[in-house]
Design a protein around this nucleic acid. Structure first.
Lengths: 251, 251
DNA sequence: CGTTCGCTTGAACTAATTCAAGATAAGTGG
DNA sequence: CCACTTATCTTGAATTAGTTCAAGCGAACG
């Protein structure tokens, strides 16, 4: 079992959610609700709750009844699956504004993966009944949900193709570029991934092994593309990494 | 370029779509519309058209503006993607009742893959404007779309995990079991896949090579699990194949 | 200060790919 | 009906990318 993407100090952006009420204004700042009518926002806000999940704990587990829909407000969370053999794969990382668990809209559905807080998280949450009511009452919400899932589907398809056709080095390059885009924080020598990122995590993200990741990162470090240390990767030469990620042999 | 999943004689189920009108009754037989209110069906039927696509031709291409939503009525079609290097992967096979292209509901979207008729196909089709109107007017339609895409998403996730963690032999076993479930036709010695299925097709379906598929099928044939020939595979021993597909080493 | 945990690296191994040659079967046209 | 052509499939041999195993290093942590 891996777990470096875990248990690091909550950054200052995590605010204790003392107030129970969720304001329509807060909702309006979420990508999912942005630009919707005041009536819709009010309706959604009335049914929303807040939930805080400490780093390391789970929002939900794979196979559990999908009873809640979340919009992450603060913190990072890891989307992962366990194989029947007990091997873990990471399907992605949720960052603030990410919507998770829309499958709760479906009668009888179960979560298809684990959602684990990497650090202290705060999220807005709707239970199944609220979600169903909202989606039926506000067609635009349902359409947004559809758009959101469709977008994720297309992304996953691309990653599927990547996994089916590309070498490990390129897959790691792409994963790292994605992580930097999601979680990048500028530092002196480049941009660092602002979360503890173990070799094992990268391996589970790219469908390879800890050892292969280590070898490839070592090679990149020798070439000056990255700097890395214990659970830490800093991208120094994005152009060269992009070249590795994209380059077509003959073309 | 592969292409055995192509150009075979249309079975008797293909009916020339001479009549232009689409009846609500026909719609009611489609999984996607089944059980909806008469008003919804009438609305949807009024906006529907029919389209026939001869075997070998494309419904649409990857990257083209997603302007139409299809429900396949007759024939099989192949969902595939081309890598930048020109290698093809097959993401799945659409059979009658399959809904394709709901992404057309999204403003500005493009199709993320190719849809090619394997044999003569007939489909119901709605253009983007009709689809948007329908989904906004009938929340249940939007919810069904959401359910449909979510289901596909979960399936794709499972295949992603499979690709990331399982050996080729098991992936081929699973693909074959899926194909038999979708397209199985009983014969004397077992159940045959009722479509021309080249080694290359299986390779593109499972992320491996023609040669590896050939070797594995040969081995299975020697063990009496399957019978196979040119573009043809018959499953004889489903139990043993399922064992290969499922078995966990220790446990 | 010792233990733990994550990382690195070499060496052996293996699954799968690639290349090459040929076999089999299906059309095609004389 | 037969030769010719083409496409699919098979199989061996060489190669390789990536895994697995094992040993050891070094930083963090109690």
């Amino acid at each position: 079992m891996s777990s470096a993407l875990l248990w690091y100090d909550a950054p200052a952006t995590v605010v204790p959610a003392n107030e129970v009420a969720v304001s329509a204004a807060l909702l309006g700042q979420c990508r999912y609700f942005a630009g919707l009518s005041a009536a819709t926002l009010a309706d959604a806000a009335a049914m929303a709750q807040r939930r805080c999940v400490p780093g390391g704990e789970f929002f939900f587990h794979q196979g559990a009844p999908a009873n809640h829909f979340y919009v992450l407000i603060a913190g990072h969370a890891r989307l992962s699956q366990l194989t029947p053999e007990g091997r873990q794969i990471i399907l992605g990382l949720a960052v603030p504004h990410h919507e998770i668990g829309i499958i709760a809209a479906i009668e009888g559905a179960v979560y298809p993966l684990d959602l684990q807080a990497v650090q202290d998280c705060e999220a807005l949450v709707w239970d199944r009944a609220a979600l169903s009511t909202l989606l039926e009452a506000h067609p635009l919400l349902a359409l947004r949900a559809l758009r959101m899932v469709s977008g994720r589907f297309v992304e996953l398809q691309d990653r599927y193709r990547e996994l089916a056709t590309e070498r490990v080095e390129r897959r790691i390059a792409r994963a790292l570029l994605r992580l930097v885009a999601q979680l990048g924080r500028p530092v002196q020598t480049g941009v660092t991934v602002a979360a503890p990122l173990a070799r094992q995590d990268l391996a589970e993200l790219t469908g390879t092994t800890l050892y292969t990741v280590s070898r490839i990162l070592s090679a990149w470090e020798a070439q000056g593309i990255i700097e890395s240390g214990r659970e830490r990767v800093t991208l120094c030469d994005a152009v060269q990494l992009a070249r590795i990620a994209e380059e077509v042999p003959e073309g």
